[in-house]
């Protein structure tokens, strides 16, 4: 079974990372970004059911007070792409996912596996961690490419997908 978990801040909580990304985009010389949202992604594979996964998210992956989680049953959030990349006036919402390349040590993922065992959850085979960015604003696809290459992903160790 392959699961995709997305952890993001609850509405109303300050997301320092999103704030920093927005500022860094301005530093790249790209203006017009209206809003940035970020989420941590976990791709979890193994013999694990939804109740166990909910336990893992609630107890380990998300901060109960400030964060919320969403669980999907596939890798990459392709099924949401059509709903989200729509254009409203001059504002486009871009969704970018950044993942480590194969073979690159993913220390957080290793810790998740250990943490799951400590919670009594067995059967997880592999965990991968990634980031999701939602950038809204009047950006061209060239500009989004530049943001990815210059800011969000380091091609030496990471790969990215734009939706």
């Amino acid at each position: 079974m392959e699961w995709m978990v997305e952890i993001c801040y609850k509405p109303g909580f300050f997301n320092a990372q999103a704030h920093a990304v927005q500022k860094d985009i301005e530093d790249l010389g790209i203006s017009g970004v209206k809003k940035v949202r970020t989420a941590q992604l976990y791709s979890i594979e193994g013999n694990i059911g939804e109740p166990e996964l909910k336990l893992l998210c609630g107890e380990l992956l998300a901060d109960k007070i400030t964060q919320q989680f969403r669980i999907n049953r596939s890798s990459f959030i392709v099924h949401r792409a059509s709903a989200n990349s729509k254009t409203e006036g001059s504002t486009t919402r871009w969704i970018i996912e950044v993942w480590y390349k194969k073979g690159v040590t993913d220390a957080v993922a290793d810790t998740v596996i250990k943490g799951a065992v400590d919670l009594g959850i067995k059967g997880i085979d592999t965990v991968k961690t990634g980031f999701k960015y939602e950038i809204s604003g009047g950006l061209s696809s060239e500009q989004v490419e530049r943001i990815c290459r210059g800011l969000l992903a380091n091609k030496v160790v990471q790969e990215y997908k734009i939706q």
């Binding site: 390349k101 073979g103 690159v104 040590t105 993913d106 220390a107 290793d110 030496v156 160790v157």
Partner: peptide, 12 residues
Amino acid sequence: EVSAVQIGNPIV
């Protein structure tokens, strides 16, 4: 080359 980069794990 890519493999020259190391990734750290401070907890270990």
